[in-house]
Design a protein around this nucleic acid. Structure first.
Lengths: 174, 174
DNA sequence: CAGACAATTCAATAATTTTTGAACTATGGC
DNA sequence: GCCATAGTTCAAAAATTATTGAATTGTCTG
C-alpha cells in the first residue's frame, strides 16, 4: 500500500523533502526504467540513474533521496549498484563532506559493463557443464541431430567467451 | 519424491508420469534457465525449451508435462511463448492427433526473435518521448551538458530503430 | 451430433524480487 | 576521544511475477 498521508513536508517518517519530479523527468525515468527492465535492473536503480542523467550537476545522497522520494536503503543500494557497474562517478567538491554523483561520460560503456556482469559469469559457469553434457550425449544413444545441436551450443559458448574480452575490454584494474 | 507407478494411472487430478530428468538434462536446463533469466524469461519456459533441445525427437504436450512434472497451465503457456517467438515448430505426424514439438533449427534466429520482441517495442515507445524531453530541456534552462546527453540519447534511439530491421529481419509474414 | 480428447484460460496461490527503515558502522572535524 | 554527520546493512513488509489446476473452449472421430 501507499503511505497513508500526503504532506509534502511530512514529519512522520523523516525524509528529505525536495521539489517533486517534473513531467519530463518522469518521462525520462520511464524510458530508463523500461530499458533497465529488459536486463532485470530494478526500477529504483534506473530512477536514480535517470535523475542524474538529466541533472544539471552532480547530486548528493539527500538530494537524490528527496527528489525521488525513496528510502535511504534504496538510494544506498542503488548507488552501490551503479558504482559497481561503473555507471556513475563521484565528484569531490572541496570543503563539502558529502559525495556527489554524476553519470559516467559514456552510456555505451556503462551498458557494456552491465552486460558483461550479467553474461560473462553465465558463460563461464556453463563451459564445463556443456562439455560434460556433450560427452554424456555422445556416450549414450543420442541421435546425431542432438549431438550436432549440443556441439554447436558448445562451440558458441566457447567463442562467446573468447570474443567477450575483445569486444568489451574489462575495466582498467584487471 | 518419485511416484511409484509408471503407467498412465492417474485419472483424477494427477499428472502424466514419465521418466524423471537425467542428470545431464538437468544440467542443460540449468544452463538455459540461467541464460533465459538474463532476458527475464521464466524458468518454466526455459525448461521446456531445454527438454526439446536435447530430445531425440519431437515431443507432445503430455510427454513434456510428464518429464518436467509441471502443470498443464505452465506447459500450455510455455509452448505458447516459444511458439510466439518462433523458437519451436510443430511437427505433424500423420494419424496422430496430438501436436509434437521440436526446436527451431537455428537457436541464433530464435534469440534474435526474442530480443526483437523485447527491445523493439521499448525503442518505438521511447522515440516520441525522447524527442519531447529534449525539446523541454532546450526550452528550459538545462545546461549544455545535459542537452548534449539528451541529444545523444535521442540519436542513439533513432539509429537503433533504423538498424534493427536490417540486423534482425522481421519474420517472413510482414 | 455425441462423446472423448487436447489444449487454453484465468483467478487463486505460491515464489521471488524489491523496497523500506531502524539499528548499526565508518569517518571527519574539533 | 567525542559528537555529529554520512552512509550501509539486513530482516521484515510490500510489490511483482510465475505457477497451478479447475473450468472452459475447441476439435477430431466415429
Amino acid at each position: 500500500m501507499k503511505p497513508p498521508s500526503e504532506k509534502t513536508a511530512g514529519r512522520r517518517t523523516s525524509r528529505p523533502s525536495f521539489e517533486p519530479l517534473q513531467p519530463h523527468e518522469i518521462e525520462l525515468a520511464d524510458f530508463f526504467v523500461r530499458m533497465a527492465g529488459i536486463l532485470g535492473v530494478p526500477r529504483s536503480v534506473a530512477e536514480i540513474y535517470s535523475l542524474l542523467y538529466a541533472a544539471s550537476g552532480p547530486m548528493d545522497f539527500d538530494q537524490i533521496q528527496g527528489r525521488l522520494g525513496m528510502s535511504k536503503g534504496s538510494v544506498s543500494q542503488g548507488l552501490k549498484f551503479l558504482r559497481d557497474h561503473e555507471m556513475i562517478l563521484s565528484v569531490k567538491v572541496k570543503g563539502a563532506r558529502r559525495e556527489r554523483w554524476q553519470p559516467t561520460p559514456s552510456l555505451a560503456a556503462s551498458l557494456v559493463t552491465l552486460l558483461r556482469s550479467q553474461v560473462l559469469p553465465a558463460l563461464e559457469l556453463a563451459q564445463p557443464s556443456l562439455q560434460r553434457i556433450l560427452e554424456a550425449a555422445q556416450k549414450k544413444d543420442a541421435s546425431p541431430e542432438v549431438i550436432e545441436r549440443l556441439g554447436r551450443l558448445n562451440r558458441w559458448n566457447t567463442r562467446a567467451l573468447e570474443l567477450f574480452p575483445l569486444l568489451l575490454p574489462p575495466p582498467a584494474g584487471s
